[in-house]
Design a protein around this nucleic acid. Structure first.
Lengths: 345, 345
DNA sequence: TGTTAGCACTCAACTATAAAGAGTGCTAAC
DNA sequence: GTTAGCACTCTTTATAGTTGAGTGCTAACA
């Protein structure tokens, strides 16, 4: 048995759509006039009264119109929202093809997303979690410093300086490089266990201390990505929405964007909860980040195969244009999925 | 002949200090009471009238107190400000020692600076401009991709992927690496001219196309730093100052911080104008960035020897605590100077 | 029984007006 | 040259009145 009959649903839909447009509380008269229900405002009023009792809408104050409650938004997102037919977006495609470094791609994506939606966009590099070492190289940079370069399957490049007591000769360096690569290539962070390490050190002989350093560097590189890189764009867009732009709230929000740590919570949350479509909508209090309880957050997970995942997110006011946002995220997600797929082949 | 006699100077000083504290226009009575001049408010009023005529202070409206004009601030910064005796700041020292990657150091610095001052801090990596190649390495990452790693004198590491038609064998790679290093090491961007390039390509023989790619990568790396990395922190601090936090201004400012491009202007300006102390103060319209005409900007240049310079800056309201800010910048500048000096040895 | 017209009521938002307070400029006296 | 005093200005705050959008309820209607 449904809680809402068809008419109530229609009215709720009308209220929410109107509110998304205007940002103003919407009254019975408006609905009566601008919907195809052909009901008088009085009737609408009765229905609205019911809807309020059921918790889908609320009044900011007596004698104001109604605005959607979180429950209302939720209902809208789950049941009322029209799926847009995916449009072509050649531009983005082009962009991905023509920039090679992943960072750049991601930064650009964030920018485009923010510009398209007028909300704030965030995007993370695919998590190293189960990423594998693809290539590893030690080089003598000067008398006392070695440079370790680590390339992973996803073509993420990390480098780390290692200080040494004295320079290694070329031959030793070459041997070490071969050793490291044969031992570690194709392994993920978890797969490099004590056994691997012991074997490696044994083979390295007197240079085992360098191996240690390399492993530390490796761990460091992986670690560094645990508290992972988050690119944001359009953070100032939130100032465009009066309900978010009072000094207090804006400051908290902007801080969350600057202190990217907080965003990590969001990312983890998103990665944890598996959704088939890969799109998630957090409305108000549902958001994993406390500071964002007055916002809605929409996230998507893109995949690079084998458990390597990244997150894209849009943060905006509760009355955000969910359809547009979801649509944007979906296209982008697909694009990332396929592009990275292509690169792997 | 001085424009301001001693008494006027004292009064101006009192006005500015008071305004820096309170942010409110200051009236004659306040000065009369809280200064050691022992003059009646009427006398102060006469003097203030003179000061206004001379352009050092101004009235927001009739029957309000006076606030310092840009000229007033300028006079204050140039003549009235007390130099604080440099304090010890072990904490920062510690931090620099314990982080190895320059990026990290700079990010941290920015954070500390913002936290200390309650304004917005920005800091740039030392400009590549005349930086030299210290080490260069090509590695075969997979069948079709070469990784070029470039390390510069300042231990900045850049990497770039190069796509190749087919894999190179180890020997060729080794030869190329030696060739590249012997030819390019120690050269700065300007020193790598057509002559160098021609010679290099000739020596590379059939692999001259790869040399081209490497040079492109090199140019790219140098280029990438032309529009250089700027780290900001405490951007939301500007919201703490009512005179800057109205939606309009705040948005513009925050945008400037997000779109780091604009900050580059500031950096270049700073680098261009040589000051012996290395500290510069831009008040209001003096700022090279249009958006910051309601702010003051204080910048410092730190040096890494041989023309490699970076910039540190603080952006805040005109009524910022100049003494504190200048002091902070000075210490930090010195610290960076010496630390980097140490690293080079 | 569901729908509607009509009306009294509420409350935010706006406007006008008054009063208070801070500060100035000027004049005249010290 | 300095100061007391006073009229004047202009912002800020408070108060009250007005408007208008919107509701809830009742009674009439189909």
């Amino acid at each position: 048995m449904r809680e809402l009959d068809e008419r109530k649903t229609k009215i709720l839909n009308a209220i929410i759509r109107n509110y998304l447009d205007t940002g103003e509380p919407v009254g019975s008269r408006t609905i009566s006039k601008y919907s195809d229900l052909n009901l008088s405002s009085a009737t609408i009023r009765n229905e609205m009264s019911d809807l309020e009792e059921l918790g889908y809408i609320l009044q900011p104050h007596t004698s104001a119109g109604r605005i959607p409650s979180d429950k209302g938004y939720r209902f809208y997102v789950d049941n009322l929202m029209k799926e847009k037919d995916q449009e072509v977006t050649e531009m983005k495609e082009f962009m991905i093809e023509h920039t090679e470094r992943m960072e750049q791609v991601l930064k650009q994506m964030a920018k485009v997303l923010a510009a398209n939606t007028n909300y704030t966009a965030m995007i993370t590099a695919p998590s190293y979690q189960r990423n594998k070492v693809k290539f590893l190289q030690l080089s003598q940079v000067d008398e006392e410093q070695l440079l370790a370069v680590i390339v992973t399957e996803g073509n993420l490049v990390k480098n780390k300086m290692i200080s040494t007591r004295e320079a290694l000769d070329n031959e030793t360096l070459l041997k070490l490089n071969i050793l490291l690569n044969t031992s570690l290539n194709g392994l993920s962070a978890e797969q490099i266990n004590l056994g691997t390490i012991a074997r490696l050190k044994e083979q390295a002989g007197i240079h085992s201390n360098i191996v240690s350093d390399v492993l530390d560097a490796l761990a460091g590189a992986f670690q560094e990505d645990e508290d992972l890189e988050v690119y944001t764009s359009g953070t100032t867009n939130i100032l465009k929405y009066p309900e978010l732009s009072d000094s207090q709230k804006a400051s908290e929000l902007l801080n969350a964007f600057e202190e990217k740590k907080q965003l990590v919570t969001l990312v983890n949350e998103t990665l944890a909860s598996q959704e088939q479509t890969g799109i998630q909508v957090y409305i108000g209090d549902e958001s994993p980040i406390q500071n964002m309880k007055d916002c809605s957050v929409v996230t998507a997970t893109y995949q690079l195969g084998e458990g390597m995942k990244g997150t894209i997110g849009i943060i905006g006011p509760k009355r955000m244009d969910y359809e547009n946002v979801v649509d944007n995220l979906k296209t982008l997600k697909n694009q990332l999925d396929t592009v990275f797929q292509k690169k792997r082949e």
